[in-house]
Design a binder for these strands. Structure first.
Lengths: 158, 158
DNA sequence: GGCCTGTTACTCGGATATAAGCTGTCCGAGTGTAGAGGG
DNA sequence: CCCTCTACACTCGGACAGCTTATATCCGAGTAACAGGCC
């Protein structure tokens, strides 16, 4: 899985911790995690296309959350970065070779391998959809109550 | 996810449907699904290293199942092909940049993002471990009872 | 006729090219700001 | 003093390289079968 997923989630959380009305530029976010700014920008663009963030150009431009954290599931973020197609993509190899002469009727039913793999992938997607970024932030705040303050201080300084 | 997972599962099922005592060479399996023989061989080698198949060299050599299908979970196959490391690998970017000056005590607790992602991945792994290739074959047989016969006939001819 | 031995064809196994996708970078388009100038 | 206009610095956005991983291929090592010769 792409590293951008981790970046995107941490950035969304940071934006929420900051709680600013004004947008935050990529350079700030990148510096706060020592990430390559231009590449992070590319990932944040994907979040904008997915409707998770909003971007504003110009001098005081940057990114901000498009909606509250409890309306953003982990699935949303993963889909925004990785795309919406499944990890296991059935190539229907059962139709090839010796499967070419099997009657169409048998091939109408879904491939058993695909069905089994899809079942697992659905469990994954359900678990991702069941968790919102608000839940993640709540867990982080529980273990480190002053993390938000640290972040706000760092951004106020830099 | 690598295409080899699909290939590996179909090949294991085919080996079981054939039910032969003698090993089946890669060329036969590859021809039955129109797969590149040498590359399929590479994938089957991975299954051998994982203890799912056994290989025998020589003239009448080939591959055969190392244990019955109900002792092979989908997780076993996926791990054999893809490796055992998690799809989401936490890079601990929280430690970088502004996280560098946070006290070690706070960083002792696991990253909330990682915890959430791991929860989803565990759901995926559980679903894969809960299903054996025997279950997959049972589903396939239920929808297409004579599929095994078709395969055996094709192999008897070729 | 049976047994041994050398050859041979066949199969796995790993080392080697090629293609694709992720990672990283750069420059242009657009925009709000700030400052200077005029009223 | 306030308004307007202009130039500018800043930011996003997409186009362009570098590199790791997946895909595909080829050739050598080893082995079992087979044929021929010998006992």
């Amino acid at each position: 899985m792409s590293e951008g997923v981790e970046w995107a989630m941490h950035c969304c959380l940071t934006l929420d911790w900051l709680g600013e009305d004004r947008p935050v530029p990529t350079a700030k976010l990148a510096a706060s995690y020592e990430l390559p700014p231009a590449y992070l920008n590319k990932q944040l663009q994907a979040l904008v296309r997915a409707g998770i963030l909003t971007s504003t150009a110009g001098v005081r431009g940057g990114f901000q959350l498009a909606r509250p954290l409890d309306k953003i599931t982990l699935m949303d973020v993963v889909t925004a970065i990785e795309g919406s197609d499944e990890a296991f993509h059935c190539m229907e190899i059962r139709r090839r070779g010796m499967g070419a002469e099997t009657p169409e009727r048998q091939l109408r039913v879904p491939c058993a391998v695909t069905t089994a793999m899809r079942k697992a992938e659905m469990a994954w997607r359900r678990a991702l959809t069941a968790q919102t970024l608000a839940d993640v932030r709540a867990n982080a705040d529980r273990h480190a109550p002053n993390l938000g303050d640290s972040i706000r201080r760092w951004y106020a300084r830099g």
